[in-house]
Design a protein around this nucleic acid. Sequence first.
DNA 1: CTTGAAGCTATAGTTGCTAGAGACATTAGA
DNA 2: TCTAATGTCTCTAGCAACTATAGCTTCAAG
Lengths: 146, 146
Amino acid sequence: MLTIGKLGDAAGVKVPTIRYYEQIGLLPEAERSAGNQRLYGCKALERLAFIRHARDLGFTLEAIRDLLSLSDNPDQSCAAADAIARSQLVEVESRLARLTALKSELERMVVQCAGGKIADCRVIEVLGDHSLCATDHRHPEAEARQ
Amino acid sequence: MLTIGKLGDAAGVKVPTIRYYEQIGLLPEAERSAGNQRLYGCKALERLAFIRHARDLGFTLEAIRDLLSLSDNPDQSCAAADAIARSQLVEVESRLARLTALKSELERMVVQCAGGKIADCRVIEVLGDHSLCATDHRHPEAEARQ
DNA sequence: CTTGAAGCTATAGTTGCTAGAGACATTAGA
DNA sequence: TCTAATGTCTCTAGCAACTATAGCTTCAAG
């Protein structure tokens, strides 16, 4: 049996994050020791590693919740899991495209900065005037989230 | 003079976002009409466009605050603005690398999904076992934030 | 002059955690 | 065996960067 700290170390997840996952129902309520401390077996470790890995891959907690409920019922078709992964892929591809445009814009910005005064600074100028951009890197839903 | 709605349309920023920017001090307090509605001139539009553009480029509001204070004092050296842009570029490059690894992992996942039952689903399997990964797409500070 | 859109304030919710306070549990060393 | 250090507990609040809701007022078009 693992304490929460050991579990966290094993899965690469911080302790408060584990408690948070339990709180939102992503992990089941853990067994408790005589002194009320959480105890975990290896099923919990697997589940947490699954979550961690999916987070690494950019899945939202909602998507992970779906994937977990799928893997809890292994007799269904895997079309749903596939769909989730595919939509994740589409998202990643669009972010990739946007980031690439962004990168070239930033490169242009730093290359053009002649090291003079702000008044001549292309960084500020480019940011103030979108029409100076080489590429269109705008995006309706800003890519802030996730 | 523009109302807040027109300003938002012109700059591509939603109305509550403009009020939010004012609230956190990124935009100065707007003039008001007789009926207490905000009114903006073209300086406000320029400033908002600057913010929007910088957000598009992935700058945090804090970085934007710095850039704005730089552009408000155009007599300094532009080294500071340049440094902000450069550090932003470094960040973007690292995110780009990570996203690329991630994308190929997702591609592998969906390609390998045979369309059978969950029990055989590679999507679920790969998520449960990191050792099945082709690349290391892990990251200490998850790339969640911006 | 009326009606509907757009504006106002204020508050609370979102995602995915992270940080802090103050109390209890466990474990390693003297 | 005692003690000190570390780990864990609950609870609450905070972070970015908005978004949404409620209940009201103002404005512009027909």
